[in-house]
């Protein structure tokens, strides 16, 4: 058996689109990491004339927004914000979802009924409205945004994990674990969870993409943290100028589009690798 990392890459590589997605994501990550080097000052500082078109001034290659802030700097710093919000929100959603889904799927019966009704309540609330209400009440801070996005995204994880657990708990190796006297928690964590994780990873990557969109939507409506540069915030700034200086919206819009596309492609690629049904094809 080959080294698992090389084996993983060998399978992943077969999906060309997924490799492109990974490349785009690498560029975004590189942007985020290099932002403090190339744009050491606060990107929200006013640095030049307002509404400067891209490629007209060498100091501001991507132009400036309505207040004269450097768009390139905002994009670079925004990349980090976007990624962190996406990742942390996805982590929050996955943690809640795995916990609830695992308990519901493993125990079944009344536990399952109660937890699934609870999940359904969350599913029926319109996501964006819930998020807006939450941020409006708690205040537009980045932590609140992240938690809010996590709270609206966990239901799909819970449903997936529950379904996985329900099939896995019937498998004989779980029976064998019970026969040797293993505790429920230990069975859930060491026996079933490692087998249920691959599809969850795929879903988590898609939740990151969803979180990026939610954050952008919030920022666009002016409800994200105004003290941090983000792509959605930039679009929000630019929406009033869309007839004249449309690039202010278009550039971050393009960045969001590419990032979300990349994350979806990666999700597909992970699905191909991790979904055992497709193995050996």
């Amino acid at each position: 058996m080959a080294n698992p990392v090389t084996e993983f890459w060998r399978r992943y590589r077969r999906n060309g689109a997924a490799v492109v997605g990974l490349a785009i994501l690498c560029v975004v990550v590189a942007m985020a990491l290099s932002a403090p080097v190339f744009f050491p000052t606060n990107p929200l500082r006013l640095v030049g004339p307002a509404e400067l078109w891209p490629l007209t001034d060498a100091r501001f290659p991507l132009g400036t927004d309505s207040l004269g802030r450097d768009i390139a700097a905002q994009l670079a710093h925004g990349a980090g914000t976007t990624l962190i919000i996406g990742l942390v929100a996805s982590l929050v959603a996955t943690t809640i979802g795995v916990g609830i889904g695992a308990a519901a799927g493993y125990y079944g019966g009344l536990v399952d009924d109660v937890l699934m009704r609870f999940t359904e309540i969350f599913q029926t609330i319109p996501n964006l409205i819930f998020l807006l209400a939450l941020v409006a009440v708690l205040g537009p801070k980045i932590e609140h945004v992240v938690i809010g996005i996590g709270l609206i995204s966990w239901t799909s994880v819970a449903r997936l994990v529950r379904a996985e657990f329900m099939t896995l708990r019937e498998r004989e190796f779980v029976l064998a674990s019970r026969a040797m006297g293993m505790s429920d928690l230990r069975i859930i964590v060491t026996q079933i969870l490692p087998n249920a994780i691959p599809p969850v990873i795929v879903l988590a990557s898609l939740i990151v993409a969803g979180a990026v969109l939610f954050e952008s939507a919030l920022a666009f409506l002016g409800l994200s943290d105004p003290n941090i540069a983000s792509w959605g915030g930039l679009i929000g700034e630019g929406r009033l100028l869309i007839r004249t200086s449309w690039y202010v919206c278009a550039l971050p819009g393009l960045a969001i589009l590419l990032t979300v596309l990349a994350l979806n492609l990666i999700g597909d690629g992970l699905n191909d690798v991790l979904n055992p049904m497709l193995k050996n094809r």
């Binding site: 498998r171 190796f173 064998a176 026996q191 490692p194």
Partner: peptide, 16 residues
């Protein structure tokens, strides 16, 4: 008292 199961595929945790 211990048990040996029928299905040699399902009775072993594939990730262990």
């Amino acid at each position: 008292v211990q048990m040996i199961f029928q299905d040699p595929y399902a009775s072993l945790n594939p990730r262990a």
